[in-house]
Design a protein around this nucleic acid. Structure first.
Lengths: 230, 230
DNA sequence: AACCGCTTGTGAACGCCTGAACAAAGTCGC
DNA sequence: GCGACTTTGTTCAGGCGTTCACAAGCGGTT
């Protein structure tokens, strides 16, 4: 009966909202107070009409004839994306990629804090990354319980990713970011996003080859590439 | 050889083909000779019908009533995705993320070799990552020319990403993988793929909040008409 | 106070991708 | 050799996301 979510926001839109928020952060330093949809869209690399539609999912955000209040829109977007409160995350698999992520300043500045680092290698356990000690993977459940982490990041080898995932879910984690090159199976109610770096490179290789082989066209849409100057 | 592929392949399909190829590599160790579309799809985490459709873009690949020859399909996919030949890549921005990528074994095993590492920090220049020396970013054009690299990976701070991108394109790089949180502008004929780690986490945070049913969003905004009946 | 230009918000068409049902084809068993 | 089962390849419909185009609304100006 009570729909706490009257508007459904497409996932693709959510991803772009995060981009808009970051662009706004850069624009706020310029001392301006308002931006138009065209300008924001250009900076974010998307279509102006699409940007307006994305923002409209949050309700009316702008003022006609003027544009969007930078500070107001930032507040609105921040709120919509989960607020500014710190979100505890656990990271499993402290290899090279895991270490880099644990130290990545781009996360901390957005409220994502890695409060738990776990690894199975005794040589890695006990070291510190970004000021947080690495603990043995056996303590996964305890760490999740202690930190109340709701987001888990998996950077383990592919062979153990599914078992790590299962343990995270059992421990209460309901959002998982997976860097391991496997398709994780999770029960309903758990969200998984996958980042596959090898696939990204291989798509580029394919486009490269196709360009050299056949002349003009692929069925591709512009992804993150702005069409040009206004 | 038989370059009879005037058919256009959707980009989403290309990404999945790369996944199928990896799954097949794991299956080949099992000693089997054939797989069905259902089994492959299950391992890849996709719909069986969609998988068959994806493969059909390459022409008939399987045998009805039997399935797909594992070795034959691997060959076909490898060919379609750009062959097995080593692809030289340059990586600009040897920070924590860049170092991790340069050392990532998942790339080398698929034929992607980082033959050029570039950074602007004098303290980083001269060190070695994965056996490759880091050179000053001023030598970018020379490195691209020497190595004939066709793929560039950008892991620099956002502020310099566009200028690095411009220099890569001018030097002849036509495929770019961008980890910097900005929308790069490139001329036609250059492909860019963007990986935005912060966005991935923020989407998870949004889904998390939405699932918990937190009521922060539209409460303060009253448009006068509840329930957007259109 | 009214006009005018500018910008948002939204309705509608277009195209792409996904998921399911059907026909073709090849193999195994008898 | 023939039938039936299995599995692919394809066709069809549905949903989703994107893009275009226009009306509504607000501020500034006269």
């Amino acid at each position: 009966m009570s729909q706490s979510r009257p508007r459904i926001v497409p996932e693709a839109t959510v991803a772009r909202l995060a981009v808009y928020l970051r662009v706004l952060a850069g624009l706020a330093d310029g001392g301006r107070s308002h931006v138009s949809s065209g300008e924001l869209a250009s900076a974010a690399g998307v279509n102006p009409a699409g940007l307006r539609k994305d923002l409209s999912y949050l309700g009316p955000c702008g003022v006609r004839g003027v544009g969007y209040s930078i500070s107001g829109l930032r507040e609105r977007l921040t709120e919509a994306l989960g607020g500014e409160r710190s979100r505890p995350c656990v990271l499993v698999g402290i290899g090279r990629l895991g270490s880099a992520l644990a130290d990545y300043t781009g996360f901390a500045s957005r409220g994502f804090q890695f409060v738990g680092l776990l690894d199975s290698d005794p040589r890695t356990v006990g070291t510190e990354v970004g000021g947080v000690p690495v603990r043995p993977v056996e303590e996964l459940e305890a760490v999740v319980a202690d930190t109340q982490a709701s987001i888990g990041v998996i950077t383990t080898p592919a062979e153990v990713a599914q078992s790590v995932c299962d343990r995270l879910v059992t421990a209460g984690v309901r959002s998982i970011l997976n860097f391991a090159p496997v398709a994780l199976t999770v029960p309903a109610g758990v969200d998984v996003r996958k980042v596959d770096l090898s696939v990204e490179l291989q798509v580029l290789a394919f486009l490269d080859q196709q360009r050299d082989g056949s002349p003009p066209v692929v069925a591709s849409m512009r992804t993150g590439v702005s069409g040009g100057a206004r």
